[in-house]
C-alpha cells in the first residue's frame, strides 16, 4: 500500500520534448515508472525515450488510459497545462515547474475542484512510492520501501532527511514534496488524512517551513484526527521577517508564520519537533518503539 501512486499508475509527461522534460522522463523510466506518453503540441507521432508523443492530453488519455500527469512546461504556460490535464480527466497532476504566477494558480483551483483533480505543486520535486513509481525530479536511489510517510515543502531538505531515514533502515511508503509556493495543490492536511488511512504507513515525517499557517493547521488535524505518530522539522527558524527565503511562500509577515509559532503548535499536539534534521530518524524510532 501507499498513497496517490503505485506500480499501476500510468503517467504522461507534459512538456516531454523540452530539455528538463526529456531528461527527467529518462530518469523516471529508468526508475521503473510506467510512463505511457508525452505531450508536445504539434509533435504527435514523434518518440522520446521510446515513449509516444501526443498533441493534447486528451489524445494521450484516449490512447493510453493515463491517470497521472507530470508537468515540465515553462512557467507562463504551466497554469494552462494544469487546466488541460484536469479537463482531460487526469486524476493526479504533478507540476514541477517553478515561478508560476500566483494568479494563474488561483485561477485553476475552482476547475480542479469541479473536475475532482488532485494537484501536487507547483514548484515541487514531485512524489515517490519507493520501488514502484517516481513522478518528478527526486533522486530515486536514496529512497527505499518501508513504512514511513513523508510530506515536505522543500526539495533538497527532503533528500537530506530521506537519506538519513534510509541510512537508519527506515524505509518509506510514499514521500511527497508539496512545493514551496504560497498557493498550491495538496497540502499537509490532505496528505496526513491519506497517510492515516493507508494500511502500510506507520509514522509520518512533516517537514515544514516558515510562512503561512499550514503547519499550525496540520498540528490541529493531528491532535484531533490522527492515531499514527508524526514527527516534524521546521526550516527557517533564523529567517528575518518580511524577506522571501527562496520559496515564494517562505515569508514571515509581521509575526505570522514564524517557526516559533509552528513549533509551539506541533508540541501542543504531541508532535516532537527535531532541532536539526539528523534527530528525525531517532524520533521516529522512539515513536515506533524500535
Amino acid at each position: 500500500m501507499s498513497i496517490l501512486i503505485n506500480k499501476d499508475t500510468k503517467v504522461i509527461v507534459q512538456g516531454i520534448t523540452g530539455r528538463d522534460g526529456a531528461f527527467h522522463t529518462s530518469k523516471m523510466k529508468a526508475y521503473g515508472t510506467n510512463i505511457v506518453g508525452g505531450i508536445s503540441p504539434g509533435k504527435a507521432g514523434q518518440q522520446v525515450e521510446g515513449i509516444p508523443v501526443f498533441n493534447t492530453v486528451e489524445d494521450a488519455v484516449k490512447a493510453t488510459g493515463a491517470n497521472a500527469s507530470v508537468i515540465f512546461v515553462p512557467a507562463p504556460f504551466a497554469g494552462d497545462a494544469i487546466l488541460e490535464a484536469s479537463y482531460a480527466g487526469i486524476e493526479l497532476v504533478v507540476c514541477i515547474t517553478e515561478h508560476v504566477p500566483v494568479q494563474d494558480m488561483i485561477r485553476v483551483m475552482p476547475v480542479l475542484k469541479k473536475n475532482d483533480t488532485k494537484l501536487v505543486g507547483a514548484n515541487c520535486p514531485g512524489l515517490i512510492t519507493p520501488g514502484e513509481c517516481l513522478i518528478g525530479i527526486l533522486p530515486g536511489m536514496i529512497f527505499k520501501p518501508g513504512n514511513v510517510g513523508l510530506i515536505s515543502r522543500s526539495g533538497t531538505l527532503t533528500y537530506e532527511v530521506v537519506n538519513m531515514l534510509t541510512e537508519n533502515d527506515l524505509g518509506q511508503t510514499t514521500c511527497v514534496g508539496i512545493g514551496g509556493d504560497s498557493v498550491s495543490g495538496l497540502y499537509f492536511i490532505d496528505l496526513l488524512e491519506m497517510y492515516e488511512n493507508d494500511l502500510k504507513t506507520d509514522a509520518v515525517v512533516v517537514i515544514g517551513e516558515i510562512g503561512g499557517d499550514a503547519e499550525e493547521q496540520a498540528a490541529k488535524f493531528i491532535k484531533e484526527k490522527m492515531t499514527k505518530p508524526v514527527v516534524a522539522f521546521i526550516a527557517g527558524q533564523s529567517a528575518p521577517p518580511g524577506k522571501r527565503m527562496g520559496h515564494a511562500g517562505a515569508i514571515i509577515s509581521s509575526g505570522a508564520g514564524t517557526a516559533e509559532e509552528k513549533i509551539k503548535a506541533f508540541n501542543a499536539a504531541g508532535v516532537p519537533v527535531a532541532k536539526e534534521p539528523s534527530e528525525i530518524p531517532g524520533l521516529i524510532k522512539e515513536k515506533l518503539g524500535l
Binding site: S154, L157, I210, S238
Partner: peptide, 25 residues
C-alpha cells in the same frame, strides 16, 4: 552557500543552533 531553499534555511538555523550568526541566505 547551499543548494535548495529549504536546505539553505535549515543551514542558517543550524548555525544559529550552535551559537553562530549566518551572514546570508
Amino acid at each position: 552557500m547551499v543548494n535548495g531553499a529549504g536546505l539553505a534555511m535549515a543551514t542558517m538555523d543550524m548555525i544559529k543552533l550552535y551559537g553562530g550568526e549566518p551572514a546570508n541566505f
